[in-house]
Design a protein around this nucleic acid. Sequence first.
DNA 1: CTGTTAGCGCATTCAC
DNA 2: GTGAATGCGCTAACAG
Lengths: 336, 336
Amino acid sequence: MTNRISLKQLADELNLSPASVSRALNDSYEISTATKERVLALAKRMNYEVNPFASNLRYVKSKTIAIIIPEIANQFFSQAINAIEEVAREHGFHVLIYQTHEKSEMELSFTQRLLNGRIAGVLISVSSESDISEHFGELSKKVPMVFFDRVYDNIETFKVTTNDYESSYAATQHLIDCGCQKILYCGGLAVLAIGKKRLAGYIDAINANDLILNKEMILTIGYDGFKKSDEIKSAVSVLRPDGILSSIEEFSFPCYSVCNELGLQIPDDIKIVSFSNSDSAAFLNPPLTTVTQPAFEIGQKAAVMLFKLLGNKRNIDVEYNCELKSSLIKRASTGY
Amino acid sequence: MTNRISLKQLADELNLSPASVSRALNDSYEISTATKERVLALAKRMNYEVNPFASNLRYVKSKTIAIIIPEIANQFFSQAINAIEEVAREHGFHVLIYQTHEKSEMELSFTQRLLNGRIAGVLISVSSESDISEHFGELSKKVPMVFFDRVYDNIETFKVTTNDYESSYAATQHLIDCGCQKILYCGGLAVLAIGKKRLAGYIDAINANDLILNKEMILTIGYDGFKKSDEIKSAVSVLRPDGILSSIEEFSFPCYSVCNELGLQIPDDIKIVSFSNSDSAAFLNPPLTTVTQPAFEIGQKAAVMLFKLLGNKRNIDVEYNCELKSSLIKRASTGY
DNA sequence: CTGTTAGCGCATTCAC
DNA sequence: GTGAATGCGCTAACAG
């Protein structure tokens, strides 16, 4: 199959030792410019490519990073991958991708598989179903890791997150400023930091404005997904909120369509603000005000951080935690 | 760093030779069940993982496939990756990902890098800027490849596509059936088969209905992207079409907003049908009729095909070309 | 500046 | 059934 040429063949052709050819190709300082050029020229002419397996076997490092995320087909994550791939390419690295479908078991199995040294570093956004983090503790001792967006609080690693508390607070405040008194919080499970922070932002904003905090108005929905419209629908029809904060992008359309189905007018009967990483919500009729996360920048920042770790031997001088800012994008046209 | 244990350490622990341990782990027939169990048990207990580099160096195959696509952050491709990752995982394979940003140079550089045997197979959707396909000819001799969605006609490989001609024809016919006489075709460059087929579908539908085929009504726009709204805007304002066929998902929102800006009412003044892989167009006001490609299924089919190739030594019995069907999804609510 | 030697961890001959 | 020896292609130590 792969009719490839080896370093040794190059060496024979050039009347050099394999070692010298290797050094020339790796731009070693102890090789004359003349021979370097000779070697590089022939290598190019013969389409020589190093055998990564042999190279890595010797050299331990693999020039490959892994991304472990819940879902690929998702506005936020696909943008993040986009950024990560770009940064990796600039460094000449390869990118492996794994999706967990929100299952910790998957996460566990992937991290196990990655322990074998295939990987120089890992970028992870954890699945939200549970917070079993032991496997990460183990892994992070062996491989440089950076968590992004969905992180564990109880594990010490490098993290890139967004200001979820503040943006959730601001979104709630925005609804209140627009006259809402009964705001339905529609979010994911509050197991991970990200869920807790968003919920806390909502609660604190409600309290700070002396509104009544009704526990029933706090809807936390798992990622099984099928029931989400039903749950939202029954909550809206029973509780009759005048505002909804959808703290998860995937809930944005269900919230919207549920209100439509129930004959509620937006924004007269009810107002909706949604966390959203795409502009899709802007195309709803009427457009929704959104909390937009900087997906690309988060991926980029996380990747850059990882490569800093890979560079430094002892992780000196790399900032430990990094928080980017989401932005509350108001849709002026709707007047809320 | 990676404090890993080797096959030899396992062997020492068990008072066996490395060879036997290796055979046991690979479930060789010439090992007693008893020792197999002993080995497997200890391997599990010690969290042993084979070193893929050593293994592959010996064994040549790598249990890794690559995906090369124009963009990751795209409804169609992220769904395709989603499917591919799932299929690969079922086979115990790893997935490398590369994006070309529609640049053939990138494509070239990635394919070069993949020639080194890192990869067992490749899934590719080619960049549309040009149809330089020589590098693929070379690569496909060395590595099993499957093209999906964006393919080259002039290269003999396995392909998974959709019925672009038929769906484009049907979409055009739909607009005509709804009373459109002057339909603007708004598509990408017709360099690749996919572009040619979509354009041909439009042209043939126009001709078959005895409408006037105006070359000016055929807009082909490159992927540089910034100018697309401008080009569409000037075309619409000058040519005053009564229908638009947007043959690329990315053009769907620009078409819509351009009409809005120009004060054209949809569907009274102008009707829009767009190729689209997401449901986003359904949320426009009014919703657009769309040609929806089975993104997940295409990725899945391509991956399954690739693994068949990897299984067969001589590619026997694997269907060479596969065409899936897009569906024209009408939005009844708008009456067109 | 360049060559020689050795070994990374594994799978695969060939012995027994 | 199992062990001993060999080599995949490369790079790092050590010479010179």
